[in-house]
Simulated scan of single mutants.
Amino acid sequence: MVEGLRPEQLRTYFALMESVSLLHHAVEQQLQEEGGLRYVQFQLLARLTDAGGPLTMTELADGVVYSRSGLTHQAGLLAKAGLVTRGPSPDDQRATLVTITDTGSALVARVMPGHVDVARDLLFAPLSEQDLHALDDIIGRVRDHMRARPPRSAAPRKRRTAQPTAGTDE
Results as ranks from 00 to 15, higher is better:
Pro54Tyr: 02
Thr101Phe: 01
Asp91Met: 11
Gly82His: 11
Asp137Glu: 13
Leu31His: 04
Pro90Ile: 05
Arg86Val: 02
Thr165Phe: 14
Met112Ser: 14
Glu3Met: 15
Val27Asn: 01
Ala79Ser: 11
Arg120Gly: 02
Ala119Pro: 04
Ser128Glu: 09
Leu123Ile: 07
Met112Pro: 02
Thr168Glu: 15
Arg152Pro: 07
Leu37Gly: 04
Gly53Pro: 06
Ala26Ile: 03
Val118Met: 07
Gln29Arg: 12
Gly76Tyr: 05
Leu123Glu: 05
His73Asp: 09
Arg110Asp: 10
His115Val: 12
Val65Asp: 13
Arg6Asp: 08
Leu71Asn: 03
Asp137Arg: 15
Leu55Pro: 02
Thr103Met: 09
Asp50Lys: 13
Ala79Met: 04
Met1Tyr: 12
Thr99Ala: 14
Ala106Arg: 12
His73Phe: 11
Leu83Trp: 01
Leu23Ser: 02
Lys80Val: 06
Gly114Pro: 05
His145Pro: 01
Val20Met: 14
Ser69Gln: 13
Val84Cys: 00
Arg11Lys: 10
Ser128Ala: 10
Val65Leu: 13
Val2Asn: 11
Gln93Ser: 15
Met112Lys: 13
Pro164Asp: 04
Leu122Phe: 12
Leu16Asn: 05
Ala79Gln: 15
Pro151His: 03
Glu170Asp: 15
Leu132Cys: 09
Leu127Asn: 04
Gly167Cys: 10
Met57Ile: 14
Ala154Pro: 03
Leu78Gln: 01
Gln93Trp: 07
Gly63Trp: 00
Gly104Thr: 05
Met57Trp: 07
Leu107His: 02
Ala109Ser: 09
Pro164Val: 08
Glu33Tyr: 06
Glu170Trp: 14
His24Gly: 07
Leu23His: 09
Leu97Ala: 02
Glu18Met: 10
Val84Gly: 03
Ala75Thr: 08
Val111Ile: 01
Pro156Asp: 09
Thr12Pro: 00
Gln74Ala: 09
Val84Trp: 02
Ser153Met: 06
Leu55Ala: 00
Gly82Ile: 01
Glu18Lys: 14
Val98Phe: 04
His25Gln: 13
Ile138Leu: 13
Leu60Gly: 00
Phe42Gly: 04
His115Ser: 07
Ala162Gly: 05
Arg157Asn: 09
Val84Thr: 02
Gly35His: 01
Val111Asp: 01
Gly52Val: 11
Val27Cys: 04
Leu37Thr: 00
Thr168Ser: 12
Gln9Cys: 04
Ala95Phe: 00
Val142Thr: 09
Leu132Pro: 06
Ser105Tyr: 05
Asp91Ala: 12
Asp121Val: 09
Lys80His: 12
Met112Asn: 05
Ala134Tyr: 12
Val2Thr: 11
Ala79Tyr: 00
Leu10Glu: 12
Leu135Ser: 06
Arg11Glu: 03
Val118Thr: 04
Thr49His: 11
Asp50Ile: 08
Leu132Trp: 12
Arg11Pro: 00
Met112Leu: 15
Gly76Asp: 04
Arg159Gly: 13
Ala166Trp: 10
Arg141Tyr: 08
Thr103Pro: 05
Arg11Tyr: 03
Leu55Cys: 06
His145Trp: 07
Gly76Val: 06
Asp121Arg: 15
Gly114Leu: 08
Ser128Trp: 02
Leu45Ser: 03
Asp91Val: 06
Glu59Lys: 10
Pro156Gln: 07
Ala75Trp: 04
Leu37Ser: 01
Arg47Leu: 11
Gly87Phe: 06
Ile100Asn: 00
Leu77Ile: 07
Ala154Gln: 14
